[in-house]
């Protein structure tokens, strides 16, 4: 038996609904037999009547409703149909959920699931990666699982956490990424993982780019380089210690993300390493992101727009040559 990244998300929600009466799921097209645009809630409405609810197309009100329910002791999960539409709920997420605990001393345990990232032919409005925006604002935890195991355990943790969690699931990984079984153990939230140890260069990344980075690392191995790949897992909190330890091993840093280049997670990682680990660096740290344009529809443009195995390997060689 094998389980995909998407199935892991579904299974985590089934587990949560089964184990915790406070949990309900709120989103567009998630109920009935349909089970969501991507089928992440397939079958759950029938198994848990009244707890997997279709909403009108009203993102801001969906999150506002979840916040109200959370304040009454529930543990709502909001499914956005695409991460891109969560921009409509920014007000509720940033200003209501994000400030609630700080202002009132009452926590706001909502989980917002964002089907994120690019896939072929999806264009400017069904491809976005918004973790950088959410991480920028105070009061939110931002998760970016890269593996089937993390997709499962981190979603369960997200709901258990007393604070608002933005859970960025990558659509590119939904069907292709598979594991033999659901995980029995979990890494604590807030801890990054060294996916592959190395001594020549650290590639710090998260979500889908972990897999592109691993492929690039494999390519570089043929040239005799050992690349250390770090999966951040949560971009907020950001596990600076694991990143610094990696850079201490290698002396070189490349940070890779799929989102737009201005600011964001990769800039944050580099700022921290430059500030706290300047003495560890043997070369200027570098980063690789998508281009500073909206995400193009045509596959020829899209494949150039986002970082991939080849562009990562190319950038890595430049850093290694310094």
């Amino acid at each position: 038996m094998s389980v995909s990244y998407l199935e892991a998300i579904r299974e985590a929600q089934a587990h949560l609904l089964r184990e915790d009466k406070r949990v309900f799921i709120y989103g567009q097209d998630i109920s009935g037999n349909f089970g969501g645009a991507f089928k992440a809630t397939k079958g759950l409405a029938a198994e848990f009547p009244g707890r997997v609810l279709n909403t009108p197309i009203s993102e801001d009100a969906m999150v506002g409703t979840a916040i109200g329910a959370a304040l009454e002791g529930m543990r709502p999960i909001v499914e956005m149909q695409f991460a891109d539409f969560s921009s409509i709920a920014l007000n509720q997420i940033l200003n209501n959920a994000g400030t609630q605990y700080w202002r009132t001393n009452i926590p706001c345990p909502i989980t917002v699931r964002l089907p994120s990232g690019g896939t072929k032919g999806s264009g400017p409005f069904h491809s976005q990666s918004m973790e950088g925006i959410y991480a920028h604002y105070p009061g939110l935890i931002v998760m970016t699982p890269a593996t089937v195991e993390d997709a499962y355990t981190m979603l369960i943790d997200a709901v258990a956490i007393d604070d608002p969690v933005i859970y960025c699931e990558h659509k590119y990984l939904y069907y292709h990424l598979k594991a033999d079984e659901l995980p029995k153990n979990r890494l604590p939230i807030g801890q990054a993982r060294v996916v592959r140890p190395g001594r020549d260069l650290s590639i710090v990344t998260y979500s889908v780019m972990v897999h592109e980075a691993l492929a690039a690392a494999e390519e570089l191995r043929a040239d005799g380089f050992e690349v250390d790949v770090v999966d951040l897992r949560t971009v907020k909190p950001l596990d600076t210690d694991t990143v610094l330890a990696s850079v201490a091993r290698t002396g070189r840093l490349l940070c890779v993300g799929e989102s737009f280049p201005w600011g964001g997670v990769t800039a944050e990682v580099i700022a921290r390493v430059a500030t706290e680990g300047f003495h560890l660096l043997d070369a200027a740290p570098a980063r690789l992101n998508a281009k500073d344009t909206p995400i193009p529809y045509h596959p020829n443009l899209w494949s150039e727009h986002r970082p991939n195995e080849n562009s990562i390997a190319k950038k890595a060689r430049q850093i290694l040559a310094e």
Binding site: P296, Y297, H298, N300
Partner: peptide, 16 residues
């Protein structure tokens, strides 16, 4: 069909 000669030049698609 994503022709570069269209009004969207392959940057956006279908009904957009």
């Amino acid at each position: 069909l994503g022709s570069r000669q269209g009004p969207m030049r392959g940057r956006d698609g279908n009904i957009h």
